[in-house]
Simulated assay, not measured.
Amino acid sequence: MLLSRSAQNKMTRALAAFKKSIKLSFTQEMMLLSVTTAYTGLELTFFSGVYGTCIGAVNRFGSEAKSLIGLSGIFIGVGEILGGGIFGLLSKKSRFGRNPVVMLGIVVHFLAFYLIFLNMPNDAPIAPMEGTDDTAYMIPSKNVAIFCSFLLGLGDSCFNTQLLSILGFLYSEDSAPAFAIFKFVQSICAAVAYFYSNYFLLQWQLLIMVVVGFFGTITFFLVEWKAAAALAARGSDYSSI
Protein backbone atom coordinates (compact mmCIF):
# COMPACT_ATOMS: atom_id res chain seq x y z
CA MET A 1 0.00 0.00 0.00
CA LEU A 2 2.81 2.37 0.96
CA LEU A 3 4.78 1.45 -2.17
CA SER A 4 1.74 2.07 -4.34
CA ARG A 5 1.14 5.46 -2.75
CA SER A 6 4.83 6.39 -3.12
CA ALA A 7 4.81 5.42 -6.79
CA GLN A 8 1.64 7.43 -7.31
CA ASN A 9 3.22 10.49 -5.68
CA LYS A 10 6.28 10.18 -7.92
CA MET A 11 4.07 9.89 -10.98
CA THR A 12 2.12 12.96 -9.90
CA ARG A 13 5.29 14.99 -9.42
CA ALA A 14 6.67 13.84 -12.76
CA LEU A 15 3.43 14.80 -14.50
CA ALA A 16 3.43 18.19 -12.80
CA ALA A 17 7.03 18.80 -13.89
CA PHE A 18 6.14 17.82 -17.46
CA LYS A 19 3.18 20.21 -17.51
CA LYS A 20 5.39 22.99 -16.13
CA SER A 21 7.95 22.36 -18.89
CA ILE A 22 5.26 22.52 -21.57
CA LYS A 23 3.89 25.75 -20.13
CA LEU A 24 7.37 27.24 -19.83
CA SER A 25 8.25 26.38 -23.42
CA PHE A 26 5.53 28.73 -24.69
CA THR A 27 6.73 31.79 -22.79
CA GLN A 28 8.12 34.59 -24.95
CA GLU A 29 11.65 34.41 -23.56
CA MET A 30 11.92 30.65 -23.95
CA MET A 31 10.59 30.73 -27.50
CA LEU A 32 13.15 33.37 -28.44
CA LEU A 33 15.97 31.47 -26.76
CA SER A 34 14.85 28.30 -28.53
CA VAL A 35 16.07 29.79 -31.81
CA THR A 36 19.53 30.27 -30.30
CA THR A 37 19.38 26.80 -28.80
CA ALA A 38 18.41 25.37 -32.19
CA TYR A 39 21.55 26.89 -33.67
CA THR A 40 23.73 25.26 -31.02
CA GLY A 41 22.18 21.92 -31.96
CA LEU A 42 22.92 22.41 -35.66
CA GLU A 43 26.51 23.47 -35.14
CA LEU A 44 27.02 20.73 -32.54
CA THR A 45 26.26 18.16 -35.23
CA PHE A 46 28.49 19.96 -37.70
CA PHE A 47 31.65 20.17 -35.62
CA SER A 48 31.20 16.82 -33.86
CA GLY A 49 30.35 14.71 -36.89
CA VAL A 50 30.15 16.42 -40.25
CA TYR A 51 33.36 18.44 -40.24
CA GLY A 52 35.56 15.50 -39.31
CA THR A 53 33.97 13.52 -42.13
CA CYS A 54 34.76 16.35 -44.54
CA ILE A 55 38.41 16.42 -43.50
CA GLY A 56 38.78 12.66 -43.83
CA ALA A 57 37.20 12.68 -47.30
CA VAL A 58 39.70 15.12 -48.85
CA ASN A 59 42.17 13.01 -50.83
CA ARG A 60 44.45 16.00 -51.35
CA PHE A 61 45.39 15.75 -47.68
CA GLY A 62 47.12 12.52 -48.59
CA SER A 63 47.79 9.72 -46.14
CA GLU A 64 47.33 12.11 -43.21
CA ALA A 65 43.66 12.77 -44.00
CA LYS A 66 42.32 10.23 -41.51
CA SER A 67 44.72 11.24 -38.75
CA LEU A 68 43.64 14.86 -39.17
CA ILE A 69 40.17 13.87 -37.95
CA GLY A 70 41.56 13.16 -34.48
CA LEU A 71 43.67 16.31 -34.54
CA SER A 72 40.58 18.29 -35.51
CA GLY A 73 38.73 16.91 -32.48
CA ILE A 74 41.61 17.92 -30.22
CA PHE A 75 41.59 21.51 -31.46
CA ILE A 76 37.81 21.70 -31.14
CA GLY A 77 38.31 20.69 -27.52
CA VAL A 78 41.05 23.30 -27.07
CA GLY A 79 38.69 25.98 -28.36
CA GLU A 80 35.90 24.77 -26.07
CA ILE A 81 38.11 24.72 -22.98
CA LEU A 82 39.74 28.06 -23.72
CA GLY A 83 36.45 29.79 -24.44
CA GLY A 84 34.62 28.17 -21.55
CA GLY A 85 37.34 29.15 -19.09
CA ILE A 86 37.76 32.72 -20.28
CA PHE A 87 34.11 33.62 -20.84
CA GLY A 88 32.92 31.71 -17.81
CA LEU A 89 35.21 33.77 -15.58
CA LEU A 90 34.77 37.09 -17.38
CA SER A 91 30.98 36.85 -17.38
CA LYS A 92 31.00 37.30 -13.61
CA LYS A 93 32.88 40.59 -13.92
CA SER A 94 31.44 41.87 -17.18
CA ARG A 95 29.68 45.22 -17.08
CA PHE A 96 28.27 44.78 -20.56
CA GLY A 97 26.25 41.60 -20.14
CA ARG A 98 26.27 38.54 -22.35
CA ASN A 99 25.69 40.11 -25.76
CA PRO A 100 29.36 40.87 -26.56
CA VAL A 101 30.34 37.24 -25.95
CA VAL A 102 27.52 35.95 -28.16
CA MET A 103 28.46 38.49 -30.83
CA LEU A 104 32.04 37.25 -30.68
CA GLY A 105 30.78 33.68 -30.97
CA ILE A 106 28.76 34.31 -34.12
CA VAL A 107 31.60 36.30 -35.73
CA VAL A 108 34.05 33.49 -34.97
CA HIS A 109 31.65 30.92 -36.40
CA PHE A 110 30.95 32.96 -39.53
CA LEU A 111 34.70 33.27 -40.07
CA ALA A 112 35.07 29.51 -39.63
CA PHE A 113 32.20 28.82 -42.06
CA TYR A 114 33.73 31.13 -44.66
CA LEU A 115 37.14 29.47 -44.41
CA ILE A 116 35.57 26.01 -44.55
CA PHE A 117 33.60 27.06 -47.63
CA LEU A 118 36.84 28.16 -49.31
CA ASN A 119 38.94 25.22 -48.12
CA MET A 120 36.68 22.16 -48.31
CA PRO A 121 35.26 20.52 -51.45
CA ASN A 122 31.53 20.97 -51.74
CA ASP A 123 30.84 17.24 -51.92
CA ALA A 124 33.01 16.34 -48.91
CA PRO A 125 30.09 15.54 -46.54
CA ILE A 126 28.55 13.06 -48.99
CA ALA A 127 31.72 11.74 -50.61
CA PRO A 128 32.07 7.95 -51.05
CA MET A 129 34.46 5.83 -49.01
CA GLU A 130 37.20 6.52 -51.56
CA GLY A 131 37.03 10.24 -50.76
CA THR A 132 36.90 13.16 -53.16
CA ASP A 133 39.53 14.69 -55.43
CA ASP A 134 37.57 17.91 -55.94
CA THR A 135 38.77 21.27 -54.69
CA ALA A 136 36.90 24.34 -53.51
CA TYR A 137 38.07 27.91 -54.08
CA MET A 138 41.58 27.22 -52.80
CA ILE A 139 43.90 24.26 -52.55
CA PRO A 140 42.82 22.37 -49.39
CA SER A 141 45.09 23.37 -46.53
CA LYS A 142 45.63 21.24 -43.44
CA ASN A 143 46.52 24.27 -41.34
CA VAL A 144 43.33 26.11 -42.33
CA ALA A 145 41.27 22.99 -41.64
CA ILE A 146 42.68 22.62 -38.12
CA PHE A 147 42.38 26.35 -37.46
CA CYS A 148 38.70 26.14 -38.38
CA SER A 149 38.31 23.32 -35.86
CA PHE A 150 39.63 25.62 -33.16
CA LEU A 151 37.26 28.39 -34.25
CA LEU A 152 34.28 26.03 -34.19
CA GLY A 153 35.05 25.01 -30.62
CA LEU A 154 35.68 28.58 -29.49
CA GLY A 155 32.44 29.86 -31.00
CA ASP A 156 30.44 27.01 -29.52
CA SER A 157 31.77 27.79 -26.05
CA CYS A 158 30.65 31.42 -26.46
CA PHE A 159 27.07 30.38 -27.13
CA ASN A 160 26.82 27.61 -24.56
CA THR A 161 28.29 29.55 -21.64
CA GLN A 162 25.98 32.50 -22.25
CA LEU A 163 22.89 30.39 -22.90
CA LEU A 164 23.38 28.46 -19.68
CA SER A 165 24.02 31.72 -17.86
CA ILE A 166 20.88 33.48 -19.06
CA LEU A 167 18.72 30.40 -18.46
CA GLY A 168 19.98 30.19 -14.89
CA PHE A 169 19.29 33.90 -14.42
CA LEU A 170 15.80 33.99 -15.94
CA TYR A 171 14.57 30.70 -14.51
CA SER A 172 16.33 30.47 -11.18
CA GLU A 173 13.16 29.08 -9.61
CA ASP A 174 12.32 26.76 -12.52
CA SER A 175 15.82 25.75 -13.56
CA ALA A 176 15.09 22.05 -14.11
CA PRO A 177 12.27 22.55 -16.66
CA ALA A 178 14.20 25.35 -18.37
CA PHE A 179 17.33 23.26 -18.86
CA ALA A 180 15.20 20.28 -19.91
CA ILE A 181 13.70 22.41 -22.70
CA PHE A 182 17.18 23.62 -23.66
CA LYS A 183 18.50 20.07 -24.03
CA PHE A 184 15.34 18.90 -25.79
CA VAL A 185 15.46 21.61 -28.47
CA GLN A 186 19.21 21.21 -28.90
CA SER A 187 18.97 17.44 -29.26
CA ILE A 188 16.09 17.59 -31.74
CA CYS A 189 17.95 20.06 -33.95
CA ALA A 190 21.14 18.02 -33.71
CA ALA A 191 19.21 14.96 -34.87
CA VAL A 192 17.68 16.89 -37.78
CA ALA A 193 21.13 18.12 -38.79
CA TYR A 194 22.51 14.57 -38.71
CA PHE A 195 19.68 13.51 -41.01
CA TYR A 196 20.18 16.14 -43.70
CA SER A 197 23.99 15.99 -43.48
CA ASN A 198 23.86 12.76 -45.50
CA TYR A 199 22.09 14.47 -48.39
CA PHE A 200 23.05 18.16 -48.51
CA LEU A 201 26.21 19.54 -50.05
CA LEU A 202 28.56 21.44 -47.77
CA GLN A 203 27.48 24.87 -49.02
CA TRP A 204 23.84 24.25 -48.09
CA GLN A 205 24.73 22.96 -44.64
CA LEU A 206 26.83 26.07 -44.04
CA LEU A 207 24.04 28.31 -45.34
CA ILE A 208 21.50 26.75 -42.96
CA MET A 209 23.79 27.41 -40.00
CA VAL A 210 24.48 30.98 -41.10
CA VAL A 211 20.76 31.79 -41.37
CA VAL A 212 19.75 30.10 -38.10
CA GLY A 213 22.81 31.52 -36.32
CA PHE A 214 21.99 35.05 -37.48
CA PHE A 215 18.42 34.91 -36.22
CA GLY A 216 19.48 33.04 -33.08
CA THR A 217 21.89 35.84 -32.21
CA ILE A 218 19.19 38.47 -32.69
CA THR A 219 16.70 36.59 -30.50
CA PHE A 220 19.34 36.19 -27.78
CA PHE A 221 19.99 39.94 -27.88
CA LEU A 222 16.27 40.62 -27.47
CA VAL A 223 16.04 38.43 -24.37
CA GLU A 224 19.21 39.92 -22.90
CA TRP A 225 18.00 43.48 -23.44
CA LYS A 226 14.68 42.63 -21.82
CA ALA A 227 16.47 41.10 -18.83
CA ALA A 228 18.68 44.19 -18.52
CA ALA A 229 15.65 46.48 -18.69
CA ALA A 230 13.93 44.49 -15.94
CA LEU A 231 17.03 44.83 -13.75
CA ALA A 232 17.22 48.56 -14.41
CA ALA A 233 13.55 48.94 -13.46
CA ARG A 234 14.33 47.31 -10.12
CA GLY A 235 17.32 49.59 -9.63
CA SER A 236 19.89 46.79 -9.91
CA ASP A 237 23.24 47.16 -11.63
CA TYR A 238 23.63 45.53 -15.03
CA SER A 239 26.81 43.74 -13.95
CA SER A 240 24.71 41.67 -11.56
CA ILE A 241 23.04 39.99 -14.51
Rank of each mutant, 00 (worst) to 15 (best):
S187Y: 01
F117N: 10
M103L: 15
A191N: 06
F214N: 02
G168V: 10
I126C: 12
G213L: 03
G70Q: 07
A17V: 00
S175H: 04
P177R: 01
L15T: 07
E64K: 14
S175N: 06
I22F: 07
L154D: 05
A145W: 09
Y114R: 00
Y171K: 08
L167R: 04
L167W: 04
G153S: 09
G52P: 01
G85E: 02
S48E: 07
S141M: 06
L115W: 09
R13I: 10
D174P: 00
I116W: 04
I106W: 11
G131C: 04
M120A: 06
S175A: 13
W225D: 13
I146P: 09
L89A: 11
F117D: 11
E130P: 01
C189M: 15
G105C: 05
E80W: 07
G153A: 08
T45H: 11
C158L: 06
N9S: 09
K20I: 03
G168A: 10
S48I: 02
C54T: 11
G131E: 02
R60M: 04
A16P: 07
T219S: 11
V223T: 07
F159I: 07
L42I: 12
G131D: 03
G73S: 13
K226Y: 04
R95G: 04
S172V: 07
G97A: 11
V108K: 06
F184H: 08
G105P: 03
S34L: 09
V35N: 10
K19Y: 03
T12H: 14
Q162S: 12
V212S: 08
S149P: 09
L15C: 03
A233T: 15
L90H: 03
Y194R: 01
G83N: 05
R234M: 12
P125H: 13
T40M: 08
M129T: 14
S236N: 10
V107T: 15
F26P: 00
F18K: 12
G56R: 08
D156K: 01
L164S: 14
F113R: 00
K183V: 08
N9K: 11
L164R: 07
I218P: 12
P140H: 06
I22K: 08
S240H: 09
V102A: 12
S149M: 05
A65H: 09
G56F: 05
R95D: 00
E64W: 05
R5E: 09
L152R: 04
L24K: 02
I188P: 02
F221L: 14
T132C: 09
A227W: 06
F159N: 09
F110A: 15
L118G: 05
S239K: 13
T40W: 01
E173Y: 03
T135C: 05
Y194K: 07
F179W: 05
L42G: 12
A38T: 08
F75L: 14
A229L: 13
I22M: 10
V50C: 08
E130N: 10
Q162N: 14
E224R: 00
I69Y: 02
M138T: 13
M11E: 08
V211S: 11
K93G: 00
L151R: 05
